[in-house]
Design a binder for these strands. Structure first.
Length: 402
RNA sequence: CGGGGCAUAGUGAAACGGCUAUCACGAGUCCUUUGGGAGGAUUUAUUCUGAGUUCGAAUCUCAGUGCCCCGACCA
């Protein structure tokens, strides 16, 4: 994509009302725009990142036999009265209508499955969606880490025995670990024992270590699993008694729901036994923020390759010279023909400093600079965002070297 | 929801109750520039909304709205 066509601009100064690092960098780089507290637009660059993560999540869900569907966000009151969750403060309600906005979907999926799971032969089943959720946070904060509208993947599983649920729960655990690994967060993300909240007796979270996090976790030195402060009693399941305390942000949560919702909605097997359910969530837009919080330096964002909006940032330092421009265009074609996603800074009215600073701010993993200097050696300069060193690569070798 | 703070151009800031609301960056036009945010000329505002005090309000008072932070809360 030619940067001259990109409608968003970068900003030199941070917005006065954003203290949160993820929001500051994402706004300055032109990835997101704030509309209100906890309400953000994903601009073209930000949307590309969001889509990358969404696709990673989708692939891993499909790998554990989950099927994607899309439920409505607009929800009729009845089912929520049934579960006594109509009057919870998280729920946005539409004035003068018996409708609310979705913040979780047990009330939709459970009655839905009743029409399709008619006997044990239909079990187990796993369904998920990727959808905007609405949650009336008493205090939205930390940029896109805690929004009032956010993108979430929610998966629900249905079983007729505990063993089946336990097996699937373990599969989801592995799939989640894979997702964080693919997002570059493996070293910073811990499986964490957590409280069940209002949903079940116990659950697991995936927590990514960052000072921007809202939770405190204790990582067991012996087994490497973590325990959320809420349920921490100074010893680990493995027997370990030494812990490292860290601040962390919850990037995923898995629950064994049991039969609570299947009982309320009468989702039963042929013997009349209520089905056992599990539910599993990942905040996809929150992941974008968590990644920025983990991967940045004083100049800007440093995207992991798997989620970066583009893989190569090509910068033409042509100084208006038409020959250098032509050569840059040529290199743009070469890179594109190598099936790379290239952002091409072909802007005419920017100084070298502006282009290079924008490049660092946007955080695309690989920078390729074309200038008079490099062309004298029939080369381009290649630099990784996360490294300081640069190297010259001959244009004829470019295809193989990148 | 308790406590605290803030609201002035696209962004960031300045302005004692008093002159035409100032500056930087950005953006537009013209010219000169191009390896780390370059220079000159020129253009760029209903001071969040409503009421009040006053000869006079960006500035003081009241109400509202919005935003940020701490806490409580939190699939």
């Amino acid at each position: 994509m030619k940067q001259s066509n990109l409608f968003t601009k970068t900003f030199k100064e941070t917005p006065r009302d954003e203290v949160s690092l993820n929001a500051q960098l994402l706004i300055r780089g032109g990835f997101i725009d704030k509309l209100g507290a906890g309400i953000y637009t994903f601009l073209p660059l930000g949307l590309r990142v969001l889509n990358k993560i969404e696709n990673i999540v989708r692939e891993e869900m499909n790998n554990i036999d989950a099927q994607e569907l899309l439920m409505p966000s607009l929800l009729p009151e009845d089912n929520w009265q049934a579960t006594k969750r109509w009057n919870v403060e998280e729920m946005y309600k539409i004035k003068d209508e018996n409708l609310g906005l979705g913040w979780t979907h047990e009330e939709v999926i459970t009655p839905l499955m009743k029409k399709h799971i008619l006997s044990s032969k239909d079990l187990p089943k796993f369904v998920y969606q990727i959808q905007s959720k609405f949650r009336n946070e008493p205090r939205a904060k930390s940029g896109i880490l805690r929004g009032r509208e956010f993108l979430m993947k929610d998966l629900y599983s249905f079983h007729n025995n505990e063993k089946s649920l336990d097996e699937y729960y373990e599969r989801v655990k592995k799939a989640y670990a894979k997702i964080y690994e693919r997002c570059g967060l493996k070293e910073k993300t811990y499986l964490t024992l957590a409280g069940g909240g209002t949903f079940s007796s116990s659950s697991h979270e995936f927590q990514t270590i960052t000072p921007a996090g809202e939770d405190i976790i204790y990582i067991c030195k012996k087994c490497g699993m973590a325990i959320n402060k809420e349920v921490f009693d100074k010893r680990c399941e493995c027997g370990g008694k030494e812990f490292i305390e860290e601040k962390a942000i919850e990037v995923g949560n898995i629950f064994k729901l049991g039969t609570k919702y299947s009982e309320i909605f009468g989702l039963k097997d042929e013997g009349g036994k209520p089905l056992i359910m599990g539910c599993y969530g990942i905040g996809i837009s929150r992941l974008v923020g968590a990644i920025v919080e983990v991967f940045n330096d004083s100049k800007g964002i440093i995207w992991p390759e798997t989620v970066a909006p583009f893989s190569v940032h090509l910068i033409s330092l042509d100084g208006g010279d038409s020959e250098i421009k032509a050569k840059s265009d040529e290199i743009y074609s070469i890179l594109q023909n190598s099936n790379l996603e290239v952002l091409y800074d072909n802007r005419d009215d920017k100084t070298a400093g502006e282009k290079l600073n924008d490049c660092d701010l946007m955080g695309i993993p690989l920078r390729v600079v074309v200038s008079k200097k490099t062309l004298e050696k029939e080369s381009v300069e290649v630099k990784k965002r996360k490294e300081e060193k640069t190297e010259l690569v001959k244009i004829k070798d470019l295809k193989n070297e990148i």
